[in-house]
Amino acid sequence: MADNAEILQGLSEIVEEVAGIETTEVTADKTFVDDLDIDSLSMVEIAVQAEDKFGVKIPDDQLAELKTVGDAVDYIAKHQ
């Protein structure tokens, strides 16, 4: 079980790989769409990799609710 800091670190590495955004930019308060300029298809790629990495399921309808990086960290922490 990863703690929130570890999830944030792991998630930021995935975001960097998928969207080319530096890990230091990926902080809990940032929104994926408006702040990080990540589109819906990249969100799917990020979700798929996060599922593999953290052993969670992030269905498309849940994915749409994850507005900020912090939302995603909380979701993963709760469901892992």
């Binding site: 819906s40 298809l41 799917v44 790629e45 979700a47 798929v48 498309d60």
Partner: peptide
């Protein structure tokens, strides 16, 4: 689109 994209990429 999104469901097919997820299926195809995995």
């Amino acid at each position: 689109g999104q469901a097919v994209f997820r299926w195809a990429t995995t």
